[in-house]
Amino acid sequence: MNTEKSYAVPKLHSGTVIDHLRARTALRCLQVLRLPETTRVTVGINLESGRLGRKDIIKISDYELRGDQAAKLALISPDATLSIIRDYKLHGKHDLTPPLRFRGLLRCINPACITRSEPVRGSFIVLSNEPVIVRCEYCERSIDAADFIWAK
């Protein structure tokens, strides 16, 4: 009997798997990850998921995400899971949870905010995960995920 599972996105030898991404967020996630140009990436969009109904998945070969990259993903798709694979084996698995409060990662969208003109990093409080809404701690502007400006 063939017990091998069929994968919509091929298995990874080594690298990072970002699974259970909210459907149709994968391309936005890739944009903010700013991976090295030659990185091999496989993307699945609108795949069937028991938990989410539809989900996206990203597999990145030979590249392990840094903490700041994972934090950005958590702000786009708070229900995602991140797995590190080494030689086909699971080396670590984490649920991506947005921090309650964070520095950097984003720039405030308010052009009149002091952080847009001073050499300081933005500071934000997460108001809600569903949908993701954060608030700038300086000018107190609320920002929806769709309007995020990512810090360089």
Binding site: N110, C113, I114, C136, Y138, R141
Partner: peptide, 10 residues
């Protein structure tokens, strides 16, 4: 007093 929002907090 400052024209930018959040200046006093900073």
């Amino acid at each position: 007093r400052h024209p930018k929002e959040g200046a006093a907090r900073l």
